[in-house]
């Protein structure tokens, strides 16, 4: 552990060189989808509340609960002050896009104060992030229940300098392990499992594919966490850079309040730092292991936490977690760059 401690001092000031961005679900990161609707000017402002009430009864627009029914007119000096959504174009069966207000409303509807309809585009889905909200609200006003954490995270400002310094240290440990793996003739990938509650490294691993084709760094790390809990299946004695720390050496375990000792369960509540985006097998192994959060340096071609899949946001799976990318991205990319270089050399041969 001695060299890592030295590194911590030297690198803590480099935390400005990288930004951790969240890897959000497709729903959170996709473009704003628009659908067409008929709107009509409200010529007489006094009729507004009646018109909204009666239109809500006639065309409830259940799928568009996020849309505000009425908007103020944008342009200065507009002949009418407000505009109201009448219905979706798809709700007006068999209607052309050029319609009269009479064809949209039943004969017993009081049309007082309502002008002739026109087509507008409104956001089809509620906005989930501030960027989505800002784009969507240009088309039609809508409600937005903001997740402040996501907003801050998207700006890359979620973590304080102190947190970033810790993250920097853990990823540096993963990088050191990755280099050890590379020196042993394996792929340059390193992983570190951390208990964030205790600020403590539980396991450090690197790729061990030399003896076992499935011993990717993340799989090794998960097994080392199991060993730290008295389980595990493999011995990594021939790889000194792969190690774990047993919870028995944990000073917090014997709590003075007489609480029952905390029993760690697989990777619940742990953070994983890995130099590159995990593959499908490793990502699903992290789902099975109930990992708390995952931080990775660079993306990978078949990656399953953002690139090919987003297993951490997969609706059908029973565990979801936060993923951040970009930690020490430059240094992690350099590892991969070397690897690509080796691969090309290999292909040439």
């Amino acid at each position: 552990m001695e060299p890592q401690r030295k590194r911590r001092k030297g690198s803590a000031c480099d935390t400005d060189s990288w930004v951790a961005y969240p890897v959000l679900s497709d729903e959170q990161s996709q473009d704003v989808e628009l659908i067409e609707a008929f709107a009509a000017p409200i010529v007489d402002k006094k009729e507004t509340s009646r018109l909204v009430r009666e239109l809500n009864g006639l065309y409830p627009m259940i799928t568009l609960q996020h849309i505000k029914r009425v908007r103020a007119c944008k342009e200065e000096g507009s002949p009418h002050p407000l505009e109201v959504l009448v219905c979706l174009v798809s709700d007006a069966h068999g209607q052309e896009k050029m319609v009269s207000i009479d064809s949209l409303l039943p004969s017993d509807f009081r049309r007082d104060g309502l002008g002739e309809p026109f087509v507008v585009k409104v956001p089809a889905r509620p906005p989930l992030t501030r960027p989505q909200f800002e784009i969507a609200s240009k088309h039609w006003p809508l409600a937005f229940h903001e997740d402040k954490q996501v907003t801050v995270a998207l700006k890359g400002e979620l973590f304080s300098p102190l947190q970033k310094a810790k993250m920097h240290m853990y990823m540096t440990t993963a990088l050191t392990a990755a280099k050890a793996g590379r020196e042993g003739g394996m792929e340059a990938v390193g992983a570190v499992a951390v208990d964030p509650a205790m600020d403590r490294i539980i396991a450090v691993s690197h790729d061990c594919r030399g003896k076992h084709p499935l011993h990717h760094a993340v799989m090794v790390c998960i097994d080392l966490v199991a060993r730290s809990q008295g389980g595990g299946c493999y011995s990594y004695d021939q790889y000194p850079a792969c190690h774990f720390s047993s919870p028995s050496s944990n000073p917090f375990e014997n709590t003075s309040e007489g609480e029952p000792a905390f029993q760690p369960y697989i990777c619940t509540g742990y953070d994983l730092y890995v130099t590159r985006e995990p593959c499908v097998m490793c990502a699903m192994a992290l789902v099975h292991s109930r990992i708390g959060r995952v931080f990775y340096g660079t993306t990978s071609a078949d990656g399953a936490l953002g690139t090919k899949y987003k297993l951490h946001t997969q609706k059908d799976l029973n565990h979801r977690f936060e993923v951040y990318r970009g930690l020490l991205s430059k240094q992690c990319e350099d590892l991969n760059g070397l690897e690509d270089h080796f691969e090309k050399e290999h292909l040439k041969e």
Binding site: M219, A226, G232
Partner: peptide, 9 residues
């Protein structure tokens, strides 16, 4: 062998 090995994989 998940419970036995404490390894969910």
């Amino acid at each position: 062998q998940v419970n036995q090995s404490k390894n969910a994989t």
